[in-house]
Design a protein around this nucleic acid. Structure first.
Length: 319
DNA sequence: AATATTTGACCGGG
DNA sequence: CCCGGTCAAATATT
């Protein structure tokens, strides 16, 4: 949080302010139109809605205009945390009878539908590049959403029983963003790190929303212990940076990210054309395999995360 | 051959 | 019954 603030971030903020101003202007116009059209007998709800939209824009603008440094994320998170709801806390229980045959994952039968897990959301201009390996396991058309939602799980699910998942969905804004919802924390440990890529998790322009927290589950600490079951996924991860396809996606992403993170760039220079053959048409084209260590920026966000949500007493454990 | 992604089906909550 | 999350067979990729 006290990390030096790249110029690009303030540029980003200015852009955000511009965008919000435009949004507010449009909402204003809509309000006028609404009043003209509906008159006195008009829809009160619609009016209320417009008023709320306007208020949101105003507040967001106030937040962005006031703070000088990285408080943007916190403030927005705080604002949004109140608006967005949390997962329910129902236990997924023992008393279920499912037809689906038992699998390695779910020996008892059926599959586990994850609830009561900590979730947090990032909204970024580009698909989020984070420090874990993900494997896509599904994609769904979502009602009233233009783009499908992609579902990812940690590649270490089988190895280490890591239950972390994430969902990526492209928003339908004027300038489409990628909303990445993380569900649950990684309980896995990186075996092969790629020290030359100490990036991280989130592009600077990321907006972090936190909904729930259970600090007790925080286990994302670097570890040097060696895990015996080294399977293909590890190898792939270890060589991810040399892997052609992954390399393409990653490099393009990274070069984009780096363009926003010039001050913390480390390791080899990636001087590649942006988005060579990678398709960001929707969330379905999203990367899956990445690796890196935890950066100070990651820790910063983690701190922010803690600050935002405080210590909510929430009893969920993966293990 | 091993691993990743796609995609339709299944499942459960609301 | 609808919708969203997950599974797993089929297919693609490496």
């Amino acid at each position: 949080m006290e990390s030096p603030r790249p110029k690009n971030l303030s540029v980003c903020r200015k852009k955000s302010i511009e965008e919000l101003k435009r949004g507010r202007k449009f909402a204003s116009e809509l309000q006028i139109i609404l009043r003209k059209c509906t008159g006195d007998h008009g829809s009160v709800k619609a009016e209320e809605l417009v008023a709320k939209i306007l208020k949101s824009f105003t507040e967001a603008l106030a937040i962005l205009s006031s703070g000088e440094s990285g408080e943007v994320c916190e403030d927005l998170a705080t604002v949004q945390a109140g608006l967005l709801c949390c997962d329910d806390q129902k236990t997924e229980g023992s008393g279920e009878n499912r037809k689906r045959p038992a699998s390695v994952d779910h020996p008892i039968g059926g599959y586990t539908r994850r609830k009561m897990s900590e979730t947090w959301t990032k909204i970024t201009l580009k698909p989020v590049e984070d420090s874990h390996s993900w494997r896509k396991y599904g994609q769904k058309e979502i009602l009233n959403a233009k783009y499908p939602r992609s579902y990812f799980r940690c590649t270490r699910r089988h190895d280490q029983g890591c239950q972390a998942t994430k969902q990526v969905q492209k928003t339908e804004d004027e300038t489409p963003m990628y909303q990445t919802t993380y569900i649950g924390h990684h309980t896995c440990q990186d075996v092969f790190k790629a020290p030359q890529f100490i990036i991280d998790d989130i592009p600077r322009e990321a907006i972090l929303f936190s909904f729930e927290s259970n600090p007790a589950t925080k286990q994302e600490l670097p570890s040097f212990s060696y895990f015996p079951s080294v399977k293909q996924e590890y190898k792939k991860e270890a060589s991810a940076l040399c892997d052609s396809k992954t390399h393409n996606n990653q490099s393009s992403l990274e070069s984009l990210l780096w363009s926003d993170l010039p001050s913390i760039k480390s390791g080899p220079t990636l001087d590649l054309p942006s988005t060579p053959g990678s398709d960001y048409g929707d969330a379905s084209g999203v990367y899956s395999c990445t690796t890196s260590s935890y950066s100070s920026f990651d820790m910063d966000l983690d701190s922010i995360h803690r600050m935002v949500v405080g210590s909510v007493d929430f009893d969920n454990f993966w293990i």
